[in-house]
Design a protein around this nucleic acid. Structure first.
Length: 412
RNA sequence: GCCGUGAUGGUGUAGCUUGGCAGCAUGUGGGACUGUGGAUCCCUUGGCUCGGGUUCAAAUCCCGAUCACGGCCCCA
């Protein structure tokens, strides 16, 4: 028996049904915001990801050399690919350009709860709109996507990376040291030791922990604070009010290309791997020789789905369609005529292929989640009728054969 | 990469401490039943993650690998 590779999953029919419904919900939400779907290759030249996303991501890339000697990598995320595609072939599109994607991504990490080596990202990019309202739309859409799932125990953190960047620059901290600080900043207990190394004292700790209103007191240049204030004002247009988020300057994205307003959303019931969404304002355009403002976010699709199951907000598999049970050889041709008609009308329908007893056939229909069984016996056929059995209630009635479609619609 | 826990038919489990015929439930398949039985009954199918070691004898004890789970690191 050959097993699945480490960190991968097989998804069973029930699970896929539920995932598809979540996917549909997310698609409908982003499309209602005017986003259009794109798809980029599953693998790219490894250079696309090297240096662009920062050292943390490079360690975890699934890379390989192909038979022509090219260095390739399975995508660890979509943003770099989308920006490559933009620079390649979408530069002439009207701005803002709104794109979304859904597909698998790959990272060579140690698997654990909510973390796989092949995982699915659902995300968006908003390209060419450099305003606070664009940031608000980005956050608003992400928040709406999560909220529409019905998930309740979620927290959102928002920050503006430029606030700390400006503050540390003014303190004369070098670019490299700033990056080190960012990477260590959300480990609260270690923060003080680190800061001592850079001769930053209580004041910096105070800034990190300050409430939104108090932050400006620490700043000489209040421009970036004011910008964040605008964004926070505008996200109320998207149904987000003060209880739905916190401003937390310690929210630092792991990828180096983030520059401005950023945010993360956690599902609290997930444990160690609880972040279900992250995004913000970034700059990748200069890599491709095109300076362009972009904002986006990615949802960890598998984690979102897992969180819904844990909160029992998952999609119950729904009874659908009907199962035909011919009783006796003589009724089989007639049953098939009914079946053909149903299928042509797009009704999920099936027929007993094994000549099983009525009881067994009903059992099969039940387990396969059919909404109705249709019993087709000689007596009914002679009268032009069918016996329609509701598989949930067990209720059964004889109906005119012509009214079958109508009955199915009424019942749905 | 690190720490810890675990792995028994398709699924869920008992057995492991104290080595001695691998048991139960459920599912799959078949049958009884032939217009309601989504039931009931009967039969069948199918398993100790892998590789070494100890032993007369290993699911059980020891070592290693693999995979999973929980956490660290990192991160989505």
């Amino acid at each position: 028996m050959i097993e699945r590779p480490r960190g991968t999953r097989d998804l069973k029919p029930d699970h896929m049904g539920s995932r598809r419904r979540l996917e549909t919900l997310l698609r409908e939400t982003v499309e209602s915001f005017g986003y259009r779907e794109i798809l980029t290759p599953t693998f790219e030249h490894v250079e696309l990801f090297l240096e662009k996303s920062g050292p943390s991501i490079v360690e975890e890339i699934y890379s390989f050399e192909d038979k022509g000697g090219r260095d390739l990598a399975l995508r660890p995320e979509f943003t770099a690919s989308v920006m490559r595609m933009y620079a390649d072939s979408l530069k002439g599109e009207p701005k803002p350009l709104k794109l979304y994607y859904f597909g698998p991504a790959f990272r060579y990490e140690r698997p654990q709860s909510g973390r796989y080596r092949e995982f699915w990202h659902f995300g968006t990019e908003l390209i060419g709109a450099d305003t606070a309202r664009a940031d608000a739309e980005n956050i608003g859409l992400a928040y709406n996507c999560i909220k529409k799932t019905g998930l309740e125990d979620v927290t959102m953190r928002i920050s503006n990376l430029r606030i700390l960047e400006e503050y540390l620059k003014n303190k004369g901290i070098s670019k490299k040291d700033r990056e080190d600080i960012y990477h260590l900043i959300d480990k609260e207990e270690e923060t003080r030791d680190v800061l001592d190394q850079f001769d930053l004292g209580d004041e910096f700790i105070g800034l990190l922990k300050a409430s939104f209103k108090d932050i400006s007191r620490y700043l000489e240049n209040k421009e970036h604070h004011r910008y964040l204030e605008k964004v926070i004002e505008y996200i109320s247009y998207y149904g987000i009010d003060e209880k739905d988020y916190v401003v937390d300057l310690r929210t630092v994205r792991g990828l180096d290309y983030y520059k401005g307003v950023v945010f993360e959303i956690d599902a609290e019931q997930l444990g160690a791997e609880k972040q279900i969404c992250g995004g913000g304002d970034y700059n990748l355009g200069d890599i491709f020789g095109t300076e362009v403002s972009s904002k986006g976010f990615a949802i960890g699709f598998d984690r979102l789905h897992l969180a819904m199951e844990k909160e029992q907000k998952g999609f119950e598999s729904e009874r659908k369609g009907c199962y035909l049970i011919p009783i006796g050889e003589e009724t089989i041709p007639h049953a098939h005529a009914v079946l053909k008609d149903l299928r042509e009308k797009g009704v999920r329908s099936d027929i007993d292929l094994k000549g099983r007893s009525i009881g067994k056939a009903l059992g099969y229909a039940d387990k396969c989640n059919f909404k109705y069984s249709v019993l087709i016996g000689e007596e009914e056929v002679e009268r032009g009728e069918l016996a329609l059995k509701n598989m949930k209630t067990g209720e059964q009635k004889d109906i005119e054969e012509q009214s079958l479609m109508e009955e199915l619609k009424l019942g749905s």
